[in-house]
């Protein structure tokens, strides 16, 4: 999963939620003027051709590899879990 920034038109935008494997972050929607919008989403890079075919301009903010590396770094930086597990 990469983190994508998608520029598109008002007409195309609602249909993006039908794309399999694209997780749109709806709160990230930005009005760019002239009926253009920018929204971000998480998706494998294989989704990009489908987006471009629909007229979207796609910027890859983080590749899947970037995210994996980042998450590995965080996993080593965060505190270890509590020794005593919570009650169940």
């Amino acid at each position: 999963m990469g983190l994508l920034l998608i520029d598109t038109s008002a007409e195309v935008l609602p249909g993006l939620r039908d794309i399999d494997d694209l997780y749109l972050v709806r709160s990230s929607i930005e009005r760019m003027g002239d009926d253009r919008y920018r929204i971000s989403g998480y998706a494998p890079e294989t989704v990009i051709p489908e987006l471009e075919a629909r007229g979207c301009t796609v910027q890859v903010l983080m590749t899947s590899q970037d995210i994996d590396h980042f998450n590995d770094d965080v996993a080593t930086a965060i505190a270890p879990p509590d020794d005593t597990p919570p009650e169940s």
């Binding site: 983190l3 920034l5 972050v25 990230s28 998480y42 903010l61 983080m62 980042f70 965080v74 930086a77």
Partner: peptide, 16 residues
């Protein structure tokens, strides 16, 4: 308040 942004790595922002 929806703080943060895609250019700040979205949900999992970078603390470094």
């Amino acid at each position: 308040i929806e703080t943060g942004h895609p250019e700040e790595q979205g949900f999992h922002c970078n603390y470094a």
